[in-house]
Structure formats: C-alpha cells, structure tokens
Amino acid sequence: MEELSEEMASAEAPAITYRRHLERGKLGYQRCAECSAAVFYPRVLCPLCGSGALEWRESAGRGTVYATTALHSRNRDPRNVVLVDLDEGFRMMSRVEGLPAGEVEIGARVRFEVRRGEEDEPVAVFVREEG
C-alpha cells in the first residue's frame, strides 16, 4: 500500500506539467522513448505506438505557420488563430501577435512567447521571427 501511494503521489497530470513549463517561459512537449515521435498535446501514452514511455522536452520555440484564419467581429479589429508546426515535429494551435490578423501568412517563421490569458493563466503565443 505504501508503495502505491508514493507512485500515485509522484504522478502529475500532463496538462499540469505543460502549464508548469509555460510558467517558466518554456514550451513543453513530449517525446516517445520507444518510437521517437514528438507528441503534442501532452498525454500518458504515445498516440503512434501506444507506449507509456513519454519524456518531457523543452521546445526551442521555433516554428512555421501551417494554417491561418482571421476572425472578424463588428466594431473590433480582426484577430488571428493559427496552427504552427514546431521544428521538433509537433503541431499546436496558437495565435501570431505583432501584426494585423489578416497579414499572417502560411509558411512564415515564428517564435514562441508566453502571454497571460483572461484568468492570468500562461498562454503560448507566437511572434514573427525577425530576419
């Protein structure tokens, strides 16, 4: 019984680990020790090979815009939602900040930053990579 309790206490929900990374300004993702797949969103088993041996890694935060849309609302500037392909081989939803929503282009190189959300939660966003 003692052993089981310790094991349970050491487990942390994948979403919590991800958030702890963001709180430190890092973009966390997982890599499968069995099949080497980059895994995102974080889970407890690899969706490719089924292994439970997922290891946390820190992304370098560099990626390429894969798809983009600008959401239009009355009386407000459009805002942007993108899918970004990170260089480590995973994809995530995000937004690109620092330029008008409609000017975000597929293929653009972008860099990860952390912003604060509506409830002060850390949110992964991207800005255009200079040069």
Partner: peptide, 22 residues
C-alpha cells in the same frame, strides 16, 4: 480544451477556415 480554448477560435467555422487556408 487547454490547448485550443485560449485562442478563442469560433467553433466550428474557424476550424474549417484553417482547412480552407491550407
């Protein structure tokens, strides 16, 4: 969904818009 909800995409139109953009 902590990996999509924060970006306030409009469900479901924005998802189809992303596909159209690609």
């Amino acid at each position: 969904n902590p990996f999509e909800t924060p970006y306030r995409a409009r469900y479901p139109v924005s998802m189809y818009a992303l596909a159209a953009s690609r």
